[in-house]
């Protein structure tokens, strides 16, 4: 007799547990306000990344097309993956030959966004930007030259 009671007890407790589970999903079904989906390309205007988000390395330029990079290669050394490549050149400042950058090459396809180059920079020339839409159709487009054409180093940065 006891086993028969247990048999039915089992059925009812099982059914009850199933009902409780259905209650949870039913709750969300009837509360569409709790939907968490963000419709990404549509909300591009309002989507704001956190300021510390590491998207890609950029070389800061001011309005006179001047940057702070001295071409010291500290970031190149700090980078674990060979993402950054500094191609230096010699320029003449006040009669002396000084090292400067010819091209600041950044291989986005190799970057792991570890952020080690940023603190390595002695002049705070580079920062991590918040951009994240890096998809391109050609791999070669991922290799970027960060210094803008015609840009030069700011005065007073050594």
């Amino acid at each position: 007799m006891k086993s028969i009671i247990n048999y039915f007890k089992e059925i009812f407790s099982g059914l009850k547990s199933l009902m409780q589970g259905m209650k949870v999903t039913g709750h969300y079904f009837t509360h569409p306000k709790e939907i968490i989906t963000q419709q990404y390309p549509e909300n591009r205007e309002t989507l704001k990344m956190f300021e510390r988000f590491r998207g890609e390395v950029v070389l800061l330029h001011d309005e006179n097309n001047e940057h702070k990079c001295t071409g010291c290669s500290a970031c190149e050394v700090a980078c674990p993956n060979g993402t950054i490549e500094i191609i230096p050149k010699r320029i003449e400042v006040e009669g002396r030959k000084v090292k400067a950058i010819d091209q600041f090459v950044y291989h986005l396809q190799m970057c792991t966004m570890c952020g080690l180059c940023i603190p390595a920079c002695p002049t705070d020339a580079i920062v991590m930007a918040n951009t994240f839409e890096h998809a391109v159709f050609d791999r070669s487009k991922l290799t970027k030259i960060l210094n803008k054409p015609g840009s030069k180093i700011m005065d007073g940065i050594k």
């Binding site: 969300y28 079904f29 569409p32 709790e34 939907i35 968490i36 989906t37 419709q39």
Partner: peptide
Amino acid sequence: KVSAFFQQRLGPM
């Protein structure tokens, strides 16, 4: 759609 609403999603949009 139903599964999406159960899962707090929007489903195909």
